[in-house]
Structure formats: C-alpha cells, structure tokens
C-alpha cells in the first residue's frame, strides 16, 4: 500500500512497474491501472495550465485510508496511488492508481473504487488557467464522467 504525492511530473508506468518489482513474483495474477491526464479543454474553454492545491498531511492520510478501505472490500495484494500537486501542464499525468490481485475482477473493482473514492474524499483542488489569462476553480460535477481535469 503506497501513496506518493509528486510536485514534479510523474511517470505513471515507471511508478507502476517499479512498485510491481517489489511484490513477490507469482503472488498476484492481475494488475488494473488507471491514469488520469490533464486535458487542454474543459467546459468549453481552452485550458493552458492547472494548479493543484492540497492539504498537506490530510491528503496522505486520506489516501492511505482509501487504500485500507479497498483492502477490506477486495482481496488485493497491494495498491498504489500517485497524485500530482502544484503546477501541471496539459498532457501531463495527474493521477495514477493501481491495484494488484490474484484475479482480474478484484483488481478492476478495487482500482475503480480507489479512483472514485479519491475524487470524493481526498483534499485536492484544481484551479485552471485559461487562454485569456483568467483563472477558475474547478467545480465538482454530480456526474463523475464530466468532472474536470482527467478523462474518466
């Protein structure tokens, strides 16, 4: 169970492969992975950059609790959450979530749970920089498929 916040650009696939090398070979049969990447458009506007504010200390604690919750609900061997904070450019990964399990169903379901719980509970806030020089805080949408920032 690992939580990492990155103030520099993160390499999601390197993070996942490095983490997997720390697991006992043969102890898992599935890894489900989600990567969220910053778009250059949102709500009909061109977005030139984004700043992710967070609550240091609480963010790490809440993400660790989310991993604990996933572990009580699914038989997962391990999980990984990596999240960017600070200034982000379009095209850069924002978040990576991975879950390892013996079988794919638990890995898929745990991975989705981790991501949805993160969006609901982790104290992170996106502020977008717009093409005209303005800035706006992203509002949470009741529909997760239209929430700002990544391409769920």
């Amino acid at each position: 169970m690992t939580v990492v916040l990155h103030s520099d650009p993160l390499e999601p696939f390197s993070l996942v492969s490095e983490h997997e090398r720390g697991l006992a070979p043969g102890s898992f049969g599935a890894c489900a992975l989600f990567v969220g990447t910053m778009r250059d458009f949102n709500d009909g506007e061109i977005v030139t950059g984004m700043t992710l504010e967070h609550y240091p200390g609480m963010t790490e604690r809440e993400l660790a609790l989310i991993e604990d919750d996933a572990r009580t609900r699914w038989p997962i061997q391990d999980s990984l959450i990596g999240h960017r904070v600070g200034r982000i450019e379009p095209g850069q990964p924002i978040v990576v979530v991975a879950a390892w399990s013996a079988h794919r169903q638990a890995a898929f379901e745990a991975c989705q749970f981790l991501m949805e719980a993160l969006k609901e509970r982790a104290p992170l806030w996106k502020q977008e920089a717009l093409e005209d020089g303005g800035r706006r805080w992203v509002s949470p949408s009741p529909n997760p498929s239209h929430q700002g920032g990544e391409g769920l």
Binding site: G36, L52, H54, Y55, G57, M58, R61, E62, H83, I94, V95, M115, L118, K119, E120, R121, A122, P123, L124, W125, K126, W137, V138, S139, P140, Q147, G148, G149, E150, L152
Partner: peptide, 26 residues
C-alpha cells in the same frame, strides 16, 4: 486534525480545524 469532520464534532484545545470547498482532485 486531518480527518473529515462534521460541524457537530467536538473540538479540543490544540486541535487543527480546516474549512474548504468540495474537493476536485483526480
């Protein structure tokens, strides 16, 4: 103290209380 709370939760001397808008990470 770094955990989600309700307005009715008891607070003690030395605690840290935070207020913020709905979260938008991910």
């Amino acid at each position: 103290n770094h955990a989600h709370a309700s307005l009715e939760d008891p607070v003690r001397d030395g605690d840290e209380v935070a207020f913020f808008p709905p979260v938008t990470g991910g």
